[in-house]
Simulated scan of single mutants.
Amino acid sequence: MHDILTITLNPALDMNTEAEKVIPDVKLRCTEPMVDPGGGGINVARAINHMGGNASAIVAIGGHNGNRLLELLMAEGIATMPIPSPGETRASVVVNCKTTGQQYRFMLPGPPWRDEHVQKAIQTTAAHTPKDGLVIFSGSQPPGVPLDFEESLSEAIRGAGARLIVDTSGAALRQIVEDHKSPPFLLRADDEEAEGLAGQKLETPADTAAFACSLIEQGVAENIIFARGAEGSVLTTPEGSWLATAAKVKVVSKVGAGDSYVGGLTLSLARGSTIQEAARWGAAAASAAVTTVATELCRGEDVERLLPECKLIQL
């Protein structure tokens, strides 16, 4: 069993509530919010915990929201290594409209970082990277964090022989694609990000696989996973491409599906599975996550129940 470490630079105090209707220019009376610790790496660690595994979490903490987030993580039994964050840890709000069933997601920006905070994050990661383990860098980056932070992270964990999994988006993702000095073991992104990078629609899983293959040939990453929504996710390695299909389930909330995918995949890898089998576990975890409300993520029993429905199709 390989140890797992997650890194979250821009965590959030996630609040989930409901309103009868979501309309402009009036006061909307909402239900008592559910409050959870959130942010990419945090959610990955929580998902792993829900599936019976263990992951340590490096988390940037600031202000009252940061202290509350830390309390919630401790209550869930997540081993947390806090690092100082400037200002106040951000909040995010999800409002579910009872009338239409639609979900509105409001993500606030994090506080701007200075170089001293960036260096502290790198030093803390280097000090706690598990030997031959798995390190997950997931979620958005706060303002002020260099776009090439992943390069510094790769260098920091190199001596421990750990494998780096990166799940990012926007300018940070484009930086990895356009200036890849230290390709991570695995790069994951969603379908919209993939099409943005490709500059065209990727109509089929085969189109996604062909694009991912071109990135691997360029040295962007050793392995790549691009999500394709309800279809599942396409895994591409130097040996080929596979579609890990999603289970057919009723979607309650899409919040945390991608993080649950990374959690399922990483836990499977940590237990010694091939990357292809790990992709199937990721698909089952994502399928389980969309059946839960708010930010509950996946449940271990649901992941195991849905796993037989998630097939691996070679492309």
Rank of each mutant, 00 (worst) to 15 (best):
R188T: 12
E217C: 08
C213G: 13
D207M: 02
E192F: 13
E192T: 04
C213A: 15
D207V: 01
V220D: 00
C213K: 14
T208L: 05
E195Y: 08
L186A: 11
L186P: 10
A194H: 00
A221T: 09
A194M: 04
T204F: 04
A194W: 01
P205Y: 02
A206P: 01
I216E: 02
L197P: 10
G219S: 12
D191L: 12
G199I: 07
L202D: 04
F211Y: 15
L215A: 07
S214K: 15
T208C: 12
G219I: 13
C213L: 11
D207H: 12
A221M: 11
E192N: 11
D190Y: 01
K201G: 06
G196N: 12
A221R: 03
V220N: 06
L202K: 00
A209P: 04
A209L: 08
D190N: 15
C213P: 02
E203W: 04
V220R: 08
D191K: 13
A206V: 11
D190L: 09
P205K: 04
A209C: 10
K201S: 05
D190P: 01
L187P: 01
L197I: 08
T208P: 04
P205N: 07
A206Q: 14
F211S: 03
G219H: 13
A210W: 11
G199L: 01
P205V: 08
A221Y: 04
A194P: 09
G196C: 00
G199H: 05
P205W: 04
A189L: 10
V220E: 07
F211W: 09
A194K: 05
T204I: 03
E193M: 00
E193A: 10
D191G: 11
A212Y: 03
F211L: 00
E192H: 09
L187H: 08
S214F: 14
A198Q: 06
A209N: 06
A194Q: 03
T208G: 02
A209H: 03
A212G: 07
G196R: 09
L197T: 09
A206G: 10
G199S: 02
D191Y: 08
Q200V: 06
G199C: 11
A209M: 09
A198T: 04
D190Q: 11
L215Y: 11
L215W: 10
A194F: 01
C213H: 15
L186M: 14
G219Y: 13
E217D: 15
E193G: 00
K201D: 03
T208Q: 05
L215M: 15
A212E: 03
V220S: 00
S214T: 13
L186G: 09
I216K: 09
T208E: 02
A209W: 05
A209D: 05
T208V: 15
S214P: 14
A210L: 14
I216L: 13
A210C: 07
L202Q: 06
G219V: 14
G199P: 06
L197W: 05
